[in-house]
Design a protein around this nucleic acid. Structure first.
Lengths: 203, 203
DNA sequence: CCTACCGATCGGTAGG
DNA sequence: CCTACCGATCGGTAGG
């Protein structure tokens, strides 16, 4: 009985972290007040503290509930491809498609780095790295020389770095740059990750 | 006479924006108070408003005074190389060496995007893009087929994106990741930007 | 889950 | 350039 119905207050808790997420990514952590979170959640200020012991704990739960790894990892696990190139292209498109529902995800990372001085990154790393390392090692075993010799962890970093580079330039400059800045950009980033900017026929 | 001596208060103004810069990158914009800025500058709170009309104007001047383009552009102009690969490697190393003096520069960009919703990016773009486009077009004219066919503005985006990907992964994960995550990372990012992760001898 | 409140601190200003 | 102050708002809590 208690197993089938969600615990009392669970819906309220989820509404609070959803409201807090929206406000944090739009205004930052210190730019958002507990009163704003309460108002958007439709409850009184004091009631927030029945679900969260402090404002910091609200961010903690927002950060881990809305972190993209929840759907990035499944997207990677479901991707297939007979070559490394096909696998990576399929993975990026899956991640990219899922990302459209949460375009502001980078802002959470910025808040974490600047306003929290990366206080939660250790916990995130412990959750993430085992899963990601497993995926990447399977990829490298089945790649049989298709990849240049690069350490597994560096390959992860390059992959994440490419994604972040794409999203950060999009977030920062796409609103003011001409259309050529954004047209086909995701494919260009994939091409460069795979093949680089240099023409292989020269040099 | 007034031309040779700096205007009265100019030193104070510079001390204020230096103090504000340090506090902003460590705590964010809303996490930093005008009282903290005053204290670190060694003047009274009220005196700040003789130099800046508001807290927002303090950030505006911090953002444009400390933006990396001030030394990135010269670094690019002074770089040489007989091939595109040599030129890019030389450029990255120059920028990277200069970056060591200002490791927190990304935080200013994060504050700009999250807490100011990119309010100053248009102004930054107008300053930056003409200079960068000139550099990149010279590079493409003298490259004669060394580069794969990529639009100039996309080449800029890929270059900046690669840098941001490197710095963002470093800022976020280097403190908790093993040494292999950081060792030789800058060279790996350059190699991938130039040649990609795939082995050209296959596929 | 709400009302009403706490002390502390905020950005900014008057007046000198 | 400083002192002393303004109203507003902050995170958090008591008490019911």
């Amino acid at each position: 009985m208690t197993q089938e119905t969600p615990p009392r207050g669970e819906n309220t808790r989820l509404e609070i972290i959803r409201a807090a997420h929206d406000l944090f990514v739009q205004q930052g952590y210190h730019g958002t007040s507990m009163r704003q979170i309460a108002q958007r959640s439709g409850i009184a200020l004091g009631s927030l503290y029945n679900h969260f012991s402090s404002k910091e704990e609200v961010f903690h739960q927002v950060f881990f509930t809305f972190h993209p790894y929840h759907w990035v990892i499944p997207a990677l696990l479901e991707s297939t491809g007979t070559t490394v190139e096909e696998f990576i292209r399929a993975s990026v498109y899956r991640i990219w498609a899922a990302m459209k529902d949460q375009p502001d995800f980078l802002n959470l990372m910025f808040i974490e780095i600047v306003e929290f001085k990366s206080a939660h990154i250790g916990e995130l790393y412990e959750i993430l790295m085992p899963q990601v390392m497993q995926i990447i090692q399977q990829l490298m075993q089945s790649s049989s020389g298709q990849l240049r010799p690069i350490q597994p962890i560096m390959l992860i970093r390059l992959f994440i770095g490419s994604f972040l580079g794409y999203y950060l330039t999009e977030a920062a400059f796409a609103p003011v740059a001409p259309p050529e800045f954004s047209e086909g950009a995701i494919d260009q980033f994939i091409d460069v990750l795979l093949h680089g900017i240099l023409n292989p026929s020269t040099g």
